[in-house]
């Protein structure tokens, strides 16, 4: 078991590059996610954050580099083993990716229902136990994703990701499009998942307030690579031009108070 500062290394990305039609989106990406750590990835739209996440979960194949999750190399891993490994991950996609032919509760318990026999009553109960932490009403359980608001869909997607208490959370913009109150509810949830359950999380976000609340470490992706790494605190004092652009709106908000 690889360790660093006495902590287990959960995800280790080394020298990862990814291109589409000879255009590089990511070049030589290196970072690690440690046990109990919450990592935030920031970067402009189109900088390749979602592509990075999709490489980690094996939806996209990197051109080169290595992705190790829980000491297992993911690149070129057999399908079966990859699927097993993915079961320990809770993932949300940027646009929700809820199954529109299934009701919300069926969406939420999808992975669990695939593993074990579960009747409708138990399923709904399980789904309810999760959505109540997310400020959702039980009435939405029997509706389809298309019948609830965008913000609610976002939370149902998060509920689907955390159902079964996976130890590794990968969230692609979980709070974008949510009101600040619900946004901070989600942040609390991520923090709780990391601190109390001993999980680890990678969250892609544009929301600097959210970064401050949840992250131990921040990574900035710019010009195809990681151009800055630090803590949220360091971020606010950074001289890095790009980082300043990201934190400026928040700094000026504080200034106006």
């Amino acid at each position: 078991m690889e360790k660093r500062n006495n902590k287990k290394v959960i995800i280790k990305i080394s020298d990862l590059s990814k291109s589409f039609n000879n255009n590089f989106v990511l070049k030589n990406i290196n970072f690690q996610l440690l046990e109990g750590e919450s990592l935030a990835i920031i970067g402009a739209s189109g900088s390749g954050k979602s592509v990075l996440l999709k490489n980690i979960i094996g939806i996209l194949q990197p051109d080169k580099g290595s992705i190790v999750i829980n000491d297992t190399e993911m690149v070129n891993l057999s399908r079966n083993l990859k699927e097993k490994l993915l079961l320990d991950l809770g993932i949300t996609f940027q646009h929700g990716a809820l199954f529109d032919s299934l009701k919300n509760w069926e969406n939420i318990i999808f992975k669990t229902a695939n593993k074990e026999k579960i009747n409708n009553k138990q399923g709904k109960q399980l789904a309810f136990s999760i959505i109540k932490q997310l400020g959702l009403q039980p009435e939405i359980l029997d509706l389809y994703p298309s019948e609830i608001s965008g913000g609610m869909q976002k939370r149902v997607a998060i509920a689907r990701a955390i159902c079964g208490n996976p130890k590794i959370l990968l969230f692609d913009e979980p709070t974008s499009g949510l009101d600040p109150v619900t946004g901070s509810l989600i942040d609390e949830l991520i923090k709780t998942a990391v601190k109390t359950v001993g999980g680890s999380a990678i969250t892609i976000t544009h929301d600097m307030a959210s970064v401050c609340r949840i992250a131990d470490k921040v990574i900035l992706i710019d010009k195809q690579t990681i151009s800055w790494t630090g803590t949220p605190k360091e971020m606010f004092n950074s001289r890095n031009k790009k980082i300043q652009e990201f934190v400026k709106p928040i700094n000026s908000e504080i200034f106006f108070k």
Binding site: L87, D100, R160
Partner: peptide, 21 residues
């Protein structure tokens, strides 16, 4: 149309990460 929509909205990707083929 159904499968293409699921592809475009990443539902097919999601299926693969939730223990189904």
């Amino acid at each position: 149309a159904e499968i293409a929509t699921m592809r475009v909205t990443e539902q097919i990707d999601a299926l693969g990460t939730l223990g189904t083929r």
